[in-house]
Design a protein around this nucleic acid. Sequence first.
DNA 1: AATCTTTATCGTAATATTGCAATATACAAT
DNA 2: ATTGTATATTGCAATATTACGATAAAGATT
Lengths: 109, 109
Amino acid sequence: MGASNTELFTKRQNEIANIMKALAHPARVAIIDYLLKTEGCICGDIVKVLPLAQPTVSQHLKELKNAELIKGSIEGNAICYCINEKTFLKFQQFLSEFSIKMEKKKSCC
Amino acid sequence: MGASNTELFTKRQNEIANIMKALAHPARVAIIDYLLKTEGCICGDIVKVLPLAQPTVSQHLKELKNAELIKGSIEGNAICYCINEKTFLKFQQFLSEFSIKMEKKKSCC
DNA sequence: AATCTTTATCGTAATATTGCAATATACAAT
DNA sequence: ATTGTATATTGCAATATTACGATAAAGATT
């Protein structure tokens, strides 16, 4: 098949999996790193920094945008991509729920 | 190509991406959910709970094990799968680094 | 030893992801 | 209007993922 059957799982499980999937590639982690490190957010600079061709970077940016981890805004001729803090916050909440449950449980083996 | 070029990115970026990839499927999120929710950890119970065939679940468990998010130990005839807290802690550390940087930066657009 | 139970592996089909050259689009500047 | 600059889209090849039936492997039970 190759397609994960989303209907079989909860909305929350699918949401978590989708965010994880968006970050499941080192290039996309590198993009987030870059956006968090520098003042800038210009698409062209991201392309320059990454060791991948422009269309490939564009595709990765699209995936991050689809997952709402970043948002793009037109800046004259260029496009400015920024972290979407809302989604990151949601993600962190999901993960802190994991932590809380882990604290309570403690590994059994 | 279809294979992400890991050599082009930092060890840390690849590590993060690998953990994310392991959790980038709702079935695998569901497995973690289950392990955090119940006392048990028996493979057969996970198979019963998930809406997927036994070989498919086994495959998902293998991926979680490869990413060291869970660890398996033989329990008589059965196998007990448990959360590997060490990797989760590492994951959380990576993410809190993101948070700290996000705090400092604040979205520019 | 024969059988049952539990889990893993193999083989294979369907689909998704990754990467890039070529090309399109869209806005700037001349 | 033409040219340049920045980004997106298309098309395609290579590879990876997902799913499951069939089967294997290994320990438990009779």
